[in-house]
Design a protein around this nucleic acid. Structure first.
Length: 268
DNA sequence: ATGGTAGGACGCCTA
């Protein structure tokens, strides 16, 4: 039973609805997890996605900022919209779905970016980011009922040296500081999560999912970072067939600064 | 060392 899940920080789902429609038509994943939807639930373009076969939607939106949504061709059950660090920001939604005779628990995350100053003592946004990933420690891959788990999203951290264009130059840049990369890796390992992008693509190889809007020419400078991730529990990691980074999407008309990442499984 | 661009909502915050 094939199963395909994609994740994409869309940077306004309403502005970029035509891009999402193009992506869904071209790649038709079973599930698409969006981040930075930037709209309240009432304004989410659910009908447009239903028309493309994505009739099952779990949304956790807010006005203007953040916001996550999980779109599916298959029935979804909403499990939780979790707040972190005692803040009601829309940064997480979890759902379950039945596929290939098994239950999948899907976590869709948008981790705080953390601001520019990489010092938690003087930058409360960086403090919040570190606290957020520490609190993610209790999101576990293994479930008591034997369900498999997938965790995707914009984690706003590039953990490996090969996840950035220059390891040396980015060590003091928020997204690649040791406090963040070590915190995220500790959380991933403690939670029992497998980094599926790195299971499929050797860690020696540079891979990026985000290129800044501020470059004159994103392709020419190619100063990317791997900020978007697809993780799973060990019990379905062995069913992974392929990971695809849709780099082309960065060159589409009025693009997001992030591109979609797709994981394909053969379940059951 | 600095500033560069983009979105939401309409002055300025966030990325």
């Amino acid at each position: 039973m094939p199963f395909t899940i994609a994740t994409w920080n869309i940077n306004s789902v309403r502005l970029r609805l035509p891009l999402v429609e193009r992506f869904l038509a071209q790649y038709s994943p079973d599930v698409l997890c969006l981040q930075e939807t930037k709209c309240i639930d009432d304004l989410f373009p659910a009908k447009a996605f239903a028309a493309l076969g994505y009739r099952h939607i779990a949304i956790n939106g807010q006005k203007g900022y953040h916001g996550v949504a999980t779109l599916s061709r298959h029935p979804l059950s909403l499990k939780e919209k979790r707040g972190f660090c005692g803040i009601v920001d829309s940064r997480h939604v979890s759902t379950t779905l039945e596929i290939g005779g098994r239950t999948l628990l899907l976590h869709n995350f948008y981790v705080p970016a953390g601001g520019d100053e990489p010092d938690p003592e003087i930058n409360p946004k960086f403090r919040h980011k570190l606290d957020f990933i520490a609190e993610m420690n209790d999101i576990r891959a293994e479930q008591a009922d034997g369900a498999a788990s997938v965790l995707v999203g914009d984690l706003n951290i590039a953990p490996l040296p090969t996840d950035v264009w220059s390891h040396r130059q980015l060590l003091t840049i928020v997204s690649h500081t040791p406090a963040e990369t070590e915190g995220l890796e500790a959380m991933r390992v403690q939670g029992g999560w497998v980094d599926l992008m790195r299971q499929h693509i050797p860690p020696e190889e540079k891979i990026y999912t985000w290129w800044s809007y501020r470059a004159r020419d994103w392709q020419l400078s190619n100063r990317g970072r791997r900020l978007d991730h697809v993780w799973s529990s060990a019990n379905i990691a062995s069913a992974l067939k392929d990971v695809e980074i849709v780099r082309d999407a960065r060159g589409w008309e009025r693009p997001s600064d992030h591109v979609p990442v797709i994981a394909r499984f053969a379940l059951g």
